[in-house]
């Protein structure tokens, strides 16, 4: 891992218990380098979404420490949920402008964000008039409208069909290469994680912990055809092996 600059997020000895007493996360150690694209993969229940919420400071850790160099109140942190999470009563433009208008900032940047995600024409539409993929684009536009340093994405494309997901993956990657936000991307798709990331963190459940930290050996830019290459398949196999190996270990 690149350690030349201090991490944008640093998680130390993090353990998190749910209110039910169940341990969601145990002994998490994780540094995220600025400008990097990191994915958290694992089966459902492995605590990857919980970890993302702890990183966002939406929930406080039970034990351990999370340090971040970004302030979400100043728009330095963008969060994309699994659902588009748009306000149905507001136009797409007003939705995207939300982080700006809450701080009393000028909202012109919202139009720019809409153009960047390919929704330049749809600012005046209401969310219900958009397709699922377009709603997710609007959600992404809202997260990047403040030009954040850190973008946290919680299985954002999981509910979309494969074609739409691939297209959004390609566009997200292009945006990331142009802007170099730090991205932490939660997914249960190994292929999606490998295609997007420089680094894949593999997690397993009960309790959620990190079992592998894999640097993806694929150069950027990553064209769509990369998904058909042997190199891509090999990288997926590495992540898959780490995941199944740890699960076999956990079962024993």
């Amino acid at each position: 891992m690149n350690t030349s600059s201090p991490p944008i997020v640093s998680v130390e000895r993090l353990t998190h218990h749910y209110d039910t007493g169940l341990t969601a996360l145990s002994g998490i150690e994780l540094d995220i380098a600025p400008g990097s694209f990191v994915s958290l993969v694992g089966p459902s229940g492995c605590g990857k979404s919980t970890l993302l919420r702890v990183i966002a400071d939406l929930i406080g850790p039970s034990e351990g420490r999370v340090t971040r160099t970004v302030d979400s109140r100043r728009g330095e942190l963008g969060f994309v949920f699994q659902d588009p999470t748009l306000m149905p009563w507001a136009t797409v433009r007003d939705n995207v402008a939300l982080p700006l208008s809450l701080r009393g900032s000028a909202t012109e940047a919202a139009n720019d964000a809409l153009v960047r995600v390919g929704l330049g024409e749809f600012g005046g539409s209401y969310p219900r008039e958009l397709s699922g993929g377009m709603r997710m684009r609007a959600s992404l536009a809202r997260a990047i409208a403040t030009n954040p340093k850190l973008l946290l994405m919680d299985e954002p494309f999981a509910a979309l069909d494969e074609f739409t997901r691939f297209k959004l993956n390609d566009d997200l990657l292009a945006l990331w290469q142009a802007n170099r936000w730090t991205v932490v991307f939660v997914t249960h798709s190994i292929r999606e994680a490998v295609f997007l990331s420089q680094r894949v963190i593999v997690m397993t459940p009960r309790p959620g912990r990190i079992v592998a930290d894999i640097d993806v050996g694929l150069p950027f830019p990553r064209p769509p055809e990369l998904r058909l290459s042997h190199a891509f398949a090999d990288e997926c196999a590495r992540v898959s092996a780490a995941l199944s190996g740890s699960q076999a270990g956990a079962a024993a």
Binding site: S72, R73, F81, D83, M87, L98
Partner: peptide, 13 residues
């Protein structure tokens, strides 16, 4: 929507 609540909180509303 709880996620929208989280979003408002995140942005310091």
């Amino acid at each position: 929507d709880p996620n929208l609540r989280d979003l408002f909180r995140l942005y310091g509303a």
